[in-house]
Design a binder for these strands. Structure first.
Lengths: 141, 141
DNA sequence: TATTGTTATACTCTATAACTATA
DNA sequence: TATAGTTATAGAGTATAACAATA
């Protein structure tokens, strides 16, 4: 088997493992937040709103189409977790966590970390290594 | 910040990176196979049929509900990529690649490996390391 | 009675296109 | 005329529940 073929089959195997691991991560995430009564995208959005964030920027951070955020923001606002505010440029709507939103955010973080294979099955060194490799894979240059 | 808090935030960051990387991998997969005129799940199934495989086993390998495989197998059979056969236990249906299916399988493997960040952005050493860590994360003990 | 595959249906997540309000 | 957000709609991917055939 040539080196090119090996690379090809290694890549295929790795990509499948990566997708499986991520699916496992997503499943864990979804199961963890069930008791909190919040949807997966809503929880992801909450985790991404570290400070007041324009909707378009948030969509970009989450790699979502901006249109998708409208309904989600409606949902979050209706639940009292988030408020839409407007600054000088009245086109831009900024999402900000309410006190309730911050509390929910903390609960999500805690629930999701609990029992996560990333925290239970590998050690600090491997976590750092994994972060380094994923960073290389994600670099957008 | 306590060690427990650090672990929690590291885990959160890592899980987001992992999901993003996998999404990138999936996007690349989807884009790569467009010219082949086959759907993503069909291509994933083809890649998993290395030898004649009972439908239930295939579903398990792909972490899909068996019911989902019925329509997919219909699609693959209609395209002439796969045949359903039956052995001694007539409940079990075995999927097997046709010659055309094997050719398609090879084309998929080649298309998907081309330009994949896993093969272009990290080296052999990191690929091996990544495989080791993902294996640990996926171990089902 | 347990297991395999099938059918019909429904749900979640996300994108696309056309629109409006503001700049 | 360009940009931010919205609306309505559609699509992919997958699960659930009830079922038929075989063991």
């Amino acid at each position: 088997m040539s080196t090119a073929d090996e690379l090809r089959s290694d890549t295929g195997r790795l990509s499948r493992m990566l997708v499986f691991t991520a699916d496992q991560t997503k499943s864990h995430f979804a199961r963890s937040i069930v008791p909190l009564g919040i949807s997966v995208p809503a929880a992801r959005a909450l985790l991404s709103i570290t400070s007041a964030t324009p909707m378009r920027e948030l969509a970009k951070n989450l790699a979502w189409d901006p249109s998708y955020l409208t309904g989600l923001a409606d949902e979050l606002e209706a639940s009292g977790l988030v408020v839409r505010t407007t600054g000088s440029d009245r086109r831009v709507k900024v999402l900000e966590l309410t006190a309730e939103g911050r509390a929910m955010r903390a609960r999500i973080g805690e629930a999701v970390a609990t029992g996560e294979p990333l925290s239970t099955r590998i050690d600090d060194t491997d976590r750092a290594t994994l972060a380094r490799i994923l960073t290389q894979l994600l670099a957008d240059d």
